[in-house]
Amino acid sequence: MKGMSIIVKKVSQLIAGIIFLYGIYIVLHGHLTPGGGFAGGAILAGAFILIVLAFGTDIIHLKHDEERASLFEGLGLLAFILLAILGFIIGIKVFFNNYLPKGQLGELVSAGLIPLYNIAVGIEVCAALFTIFLALVIYKEEISK
């Protein structure tokens, strides 16, 4: 995939970091403000897609990225399921049991497991969307060769 002009590259260098930071904020504050794992994960994936579209790399690097992205996707789903299953072992025997202490309403560290669920789902959604994009781009590159 070819990169774009130098103006686009410089601007996306500046912007992508800010988008990434905003995505992390949305994921971490999911239980206090609008947002959460789904929205934050999609925003994080948008930052990665912007980088790939602006700079453009050769096919070997893209394949390497795709493998790592799909690894992270599996890890995110696994973390989500493990957090839910731990409820069987600790406390009452309920799936999706919120076994951590709740804390004060409105604090950043509160709501027990919900921030951890948010982080796991955020990683999963981000990696899934990025993998889809990379798979389509790799297909296009292999076709045009």
Binding site: G36, F38, V125, A128, I132, L136
Partner: peptide
Amino acid sequence: LTSIVIGLSTNA
């Protein structure tokens, strides 16, 4: 909220 993300993946 969950349905929107599912829609994107099935579309892709």
